[in-house]
Design a protein around this nucleic acid. Structure first.
Lengths: 234, 234
DNA sequence: ACCTGAACACCGTTCAAGT
DNA sequence: ACCTGAACACCGTTCAAGT
């Protein structure tokens, strides 16, 4: 069998590799063709155009994001474990997640996690629209946090260093506060603190009955990867 | 006086207009030149290159983001008013804010708001590193929320409609929950709820003494707009 | 000090043509 | 059904040259 038969999957693999290693900007049709030792135009036959190539990569990422298994004894703990798992999954695929975000598919991507959160919110005694808002608040919180966090990491040396920006005068007489704000952020801890505060705030006043519910997790959410094949000639 | 003397500010104004009306992708050097009825290369003389042109726009936006005036009777209320004001400011400049974000300058942009939050956290009785974490948690929350929110607005018709994704089985026996999750999000309300829950969680247990503190607001944070002028020849 | 056109090395995409 | 090279209309950027 001749090895040289180019397939759509090979194209996607090579494209994903380029993105993973050099970022989305490095993914040009010509470079991709060179990587695959083929003509640029062959790629067009397999994936249509650059836009739908990116769409396909994004669809893959959405499918890749596996199911989330909540852990912990109480609903609050299990909600926090979902939040941590979500964050980790996002951080493992920064470029691709950014692309998902650009395409406005973030929500679709988080459906499995959302299901797990619904389960836990219910177990915590939240019901109806109240539970829905709690789930979404947490989801927004986690996704937003990771976006901000990634942003900080990509940031160049912040134009004026944070320390310069925080002179003593601004923090009143609170020396430790000023010092804490001048120090680099412990994003790990800040994340946990933020999530805990939010979860506490959301669950405050909810009926605390079903805390011993089995943290069984999410119904399987597999499949759904493919996005349409075949030629793209008009 | 000859009207035709091209200035750096004119270039920036035209560029900002292009971005505001057609998005960052529409800002090409050639189109900008056409807009200004000048040669492409003239623009290079004034702003160096595309990258530093974007930098300058971003610096402008950062400077534009005015000071924030907290309102409300209690520190908690004033913190929430800062959060709302921040969100509004972000939503008024979506393209430019996205550019600030891409450049990793989000933090720099929010310094004024951060100052206001520090003031209120202190008034609420938080001290030292604890106060610093509260301020940052809230800041991450607001910025992250707006990023997610913008993302949703740009989203195309979510591939499978949310309703299809939420069949009854997933929400257990909670019909209202399922219906609430299938309905479009009231992002305004979700934002307020989330912020309130977070603020409540953050302030829980803090000394509640100085609630009547004057909500005087932030020390002036003007100036700082310019970013270096002159020729860019190597 | 400011502006210009020509030129270079890139893009994504289309098309007519091959096998 | 798959692959190809040539060509088009765009990019950002540099350079040598004008005034």
């Amino acid at each position: 069998m001749a090895r040289s038969a180019l397939t759509r999957d090979e194209v996607l693999d090579a494209a994903a590799a380029l993105v993973r290693e050099h970022g989305p900007d490095a993914l040009t049709m010509r470079r991709l063709a060179a990587e695959l030792s083929t003509a640029v135009t062959s790629i067009y036959w397999h994936v249509g155009n650059r836009e739908s190539l990116l769409d396909a990569l994004v669809a893959r990422t959405v499918a890749d994001l596996g199911t989330i298994r909540p852990r912990g004894a109480t609903p609050a703990e299990r909600m926090m474990s979902v939040a941590r798992a979500l964050r980790r999954a996002l951080r493992e695929r920064p470029h691709l997640v950014a692309m998902v975000h650009e395409r406005g598919l973030t929500e679709r991507m988080f459906l499995p996690a959302q299901r797990a959160l619904v389960h836990e919110a219910h177990a915590a005694g939240l019901r109806g629209a109240h539970a829905a808002r709690a789930v979404r608040a947490l989801q927004f919180q986690v996704v937003g946090y990771v976006l901000v966090e990634r942003n900080r990491e990509r940031a160049p040396v912040q134009s004026p260093a944070e320390e310069e920006l925080w002179r003593r005068e601004d923090a009143g007489a609170d020396g430790p506060l000023a010092r804490a704000l001048a120090a680099p952020i412990d994003t790990e801890r800040l994340f946990v603190d933020s999530v805990r505060a939010l979860v506490d705030g959301l669950l405050a006043g909810a009926g605390e009955g079903a805390a011993a519910d089995t943290g069984k997790g999410v119904p399987g959410d597999t499949g759904d990867g493919d996005v349409g094949r075949g030629p793209y000639s008009q």
